[in-house]
């Protein structure tokens, strides 16, 4: 390493906060032709985590891509986080990653050793996942970016998607919320050591949590990323044809998240977009405004969100807490409704 580098100083936006908002994306995707092939099992309109292509009999190809500007200053750590984030889509579908390809953008004036460190972080994470890096592509850009395209496979009857959540299901979240707020605070130099646990969480693979959940009767699963918890939950409800209560007080938050939010460290105010569209609503009983904002915080390498039978919820949460996800919690419940929506309540009781 030639010198210390503050990688985030080159980034305009942090991590998955750089993702184009759901409303803008829907508008563009709505005008594109819809792919129709007998082998295609997914649709870009459903907000699914990865593309699904039936390769043969019961074997499905699971394909995904994800990349973003730096959210932490250390290049190797950024590489690890970007890779864990890209691999997460594969795990959300209960698939196994096989190969990955690097996507990178790097300023020409910057020492190339930093690019090497970023890529090395990615390699190490991909190897930890039991997959291999088989190529990539790098372009010049003032703002560094890194991510990967990942290919995995799954048995057709083992795949978990946004569809399948049933009325009565418990909603389980495996990682705390707040990476968008905390990385923004980190960029402002205000997060202090509170960023450390956030970094640990972001570079943690969702592999073990996915297998813990999938070994039980999971009905639907996704990972929480750039649109925030409430909006990803809405996508699951819409695909499943049901509605959900999200219990804000039960959602685990990283230390200092609310304090940093109070100091103006929101990564993106996408709250109002989803609220005004009626996709997400806040309970009339009243929920702390800062907590509501957290439900929309864009996550980088966030946890898994799963709809499971209520009678199995405690056992699954216990298994998660005993191993891969110390802070796993039941954060809401699914109920029958003709209209897909998410209602943010203060707590389970209201």
């Amino acid at each position: 390493m030639s010198e210390d580098i503050k990688l985030t100083s080159f980034a305009r936006m942090a991590g998955c906060a750089a993702k184009l908002g759901p409303a803008h994306l829907d508008e563009v995707l709505g005008r594109l032709p819809e792919e129709k092939a007998p082998q295609l099992l997914s649709s870009i309109h459903s907000g699914e985590d990865a593309g699904l292509y039936l390769l043969q009999d019961d074997l499905v190809l699971v394909q995904t891509v994800d990349f973003f500007p730096p959210i932490v200053d250390d290049p190797y750590t950024f590489g690890q986080i970007a890779a864990a984030n890209a691999l997460s889509d594969i795990y959300a579908m209960n698939a196994k990653p096989l190969t990955a390809m690097n996507l990178a953008a790097f300023p020409c004036g910057l020492d190339k050793c930093h690019l090497e460190a970023i890529l090395l972080g990615g390699y190490d994470k991909v190897h930890e996942a039991g997959a291999i890096v088989i190529g990539g592509h790098t372009i010049e850009d003032d703002e560094p970016k890194y991510g990967l395209a990942v290919l995995g496979t799954a048995k057709v009857d083992e795949i978990t998607t946004l569809r399948g959540a049933l009325a009565g299901d418990a909603l389980i979240l495996t990682k705390p919320i707040g990476t968008g707020i905390m990385t923004t605070a980190h960029k402002a130099g205000m997060a202090g050591e509170a960023i450390d646990v956030v970094i640990e969480s972001m570079r943690e693979l969702n592999a073990a949590s996915a297998s813990t959940i999938s070994s039980r009767d999971v009905h639907a699963m996704t990972d929480v990323t750039g649109f925030g918890l409430a909006r990803h939950l809405y996508d699951m409800m819409k695909a499943s044809g049901v509605a959900a209560e999200l219990w804000a007080k039960e959602v685990p938050l990283f230390p200092e998240v609310l304090a940093m939010l109070g100091l103006g460290m929101a990564a993106r105010s996408s709250v109002y977009e989803s609220l005004s569209e009626g996709k997400v609503e806040v309970d009339t009983g009243g929920v702390d405004e800062l907590l509501v904002q957290c439900m929309f915080d864009p996550q980088t390498s966030g946890g898994l969100l799963a709809a499971v039978p209520p009678e199995q919820a405690d056992e699954i949460v216990a298994a998660l807490q005993a191993g891969p996800a110390l802070q796993a919690a039941v954060v809401g419940r699914v109920y029958a409704s003709d209209l897909a929506k998410v209602t943010i309540k203060h707590s389970k009781e209201g």
Binding site: A188, L263, G264, A266
Partner: peptide, 8 residues
């Protein structure tokens, strides 16, 4: 300017 710059 994007966040957190205006707050800073």
């Amino acid at each position: 300017l994007l966040c957190p710059e205006p707050v800073i």
